[in-house]
């Protein structure tokens, strides 16, 4: 009685040609998952800061190592991408900008904004740290 008719299934992923819209959708999820790993690091950093000067210095030097900086670069890029594309998603939730032409245009705007914000953040961080 419950399953009297079959629900539609979409074809498998490999059948589609990669497009800007689909790649950006997958990247939204990927950056979200990566940022969730960053949540664990943020929690560790806060707990280290509460523990005292020594533990905090340890956390700071870990984050300041080349691997730490590489990860921080990844998290900053992911945050800006997820934030910009998230705003795009909120407009879609409101029913705005869902036609193909607008979806591509806003997708490109998200990329430009992400690159500018990420570059700006790192240029500012390094120039201010160098000055102080």
């Amino acid at each position: 009685m419950i399953m009297t008719h079959k629900r539609p299934l979409s074809p498998h992923l490999q059948i589609y040609q990669p497009q800007l819209t689909s790649m950006m959708s997958i990247l939204h999820r990927a950056t979200g998952v990566f940022l969730s790993v960053g949540i664990l690091v943020l929690a560790y950093w806060l707990i280290a800061a509460a523990d005292g000067t020594e533990t905090y210095q340890q956390a700071q030097s870990l984050l300041g190592s080349w691997l730490g900086l590489l990860l921080l670069f990844g998290w900053s890029f992911s945050l800006f991408y997820h934030l910009c594309n998230g705003i795009r998603h909120l407009f879609w939730d409101a029913g705005l900008g869902m036609d193909i032409k607008t979806a591509y245009a806003t997708g490109k705007v998200v990329w430009v904004a992400t690159i500018i914000l990420t570059a700006l953040a790192w240029v500012l961080a390094f120039s201010l740290k160098g000055g102080g």
Partner: peptide, 12 residues
């Protein structure tokens, strides 16, 4: 960017 990168523990 503007504060935490150059702050020591006391400043934080």
């Amino acid at each position: 960017i503007f504060f935490i990168v150059k702050a020591d523990h006391a400043a934080l």
